[in-house]
Nucleic acid binder design. Sequence first.
DNA 1: TCAAAATCGTTAGCTATGAAACGATATTAC
DNA 2: GTAATATCGTTTCATAGCTAACGATTTTGA
Lengths: 147, 147
Amino acid sequence: MPLDSLHLDAVSVVTNIYRVAQGLRNKMEREVLSTHGLSWTSFSILYDLWIWESVETKKLAELTAVSKATISNITKTLERKEFCYRKTDIRDRRITYVTITDKGKEIMEELYPQFHKGEIEIVSSLTVEEQKNVSEILRRVIRENKF
Amino acid sequence: MPLDSLHLDAVSVVTNIYRVAQGLRNKMEREVLSTHGLSWTSFSILYDLWIWESVETKKLAELTAVSKATISNITKTLERKEFCYRKTDIRDRRITYVTITDKGKEIMEELYPQFHKGEIEIVSSLTVEEQKNVSEILRRVIRENKF
DNA sequence: TCAAAATCGTTAGCTATGAAACGATATTAC
DNA sequence: GTAATATCGTTTCATAGCTAACGATTTTGA
């Protein structure tokens, strides 16, 4: 593959997106989530439960874009910490619902403001105009690739 | 925390970046890297070795933004597959150099074009202008946050 | 009606991941 | 010169994360 056939702008976009995502995740886990032993994905799941109160594991896998096996493991960990509990559906016993507990809600009420503060900090070097612009472009990438 | 104090544009940027990064990684691992049992990070490490031929583990940890423990484990896996080998420095025996093998180079010569094709596909809905624009903005985020 | 197919969550077995502790080595301070 | 300190990579131990296989359940089709 000759060098002049490389699409350097595409490489640059992909590389930079991944690096920001990685930095983002590390920063949040280190500065915010570690205080309650949560990983990025655990937090995402708990966030979804906070919003929806109760969600099927299959739906959780779609929302967070990880495999159902991972959902199974992480909700097990969250259940051990008493942040949520699992219960099989009575009508269709193949389905399991995960529900947030009061303790889980308290954690989110404490952590979310800190998390949001981190989000603001990370993009603070961009104007609101640039933020809107990047979001719109990324949404298009998400849509076109069905991410 | 009242809803009207949420910086929704910041939330949107962060959420979309993470989702694209996740989709990106999953797509590449599924469609390209899985044929040789490589993870995204394994591939990144092998890529750096391909470029530099031989790199200290400490440097690898910085380049790929993962912990030195992870580098230790992954290079061990890569060594078992005979894609690289490790050797302690003679002068300073605390340092370990990781070097790519011929087999490792062959794999990269096969995989990189496929990987690059994937990169192009992912951002194909954006104009080159938009790609340059997003890259520039993300580079600023990386710089300001020291990611 | 009831056997085949589809759906769902968990388990098994693997690699990845980080923090902390550790062991070996090198550097610094006095 | 040597004791304290710093550096580096590995190991340990826990969770995360994937695919594939599985077991239980429900739906479908003839």
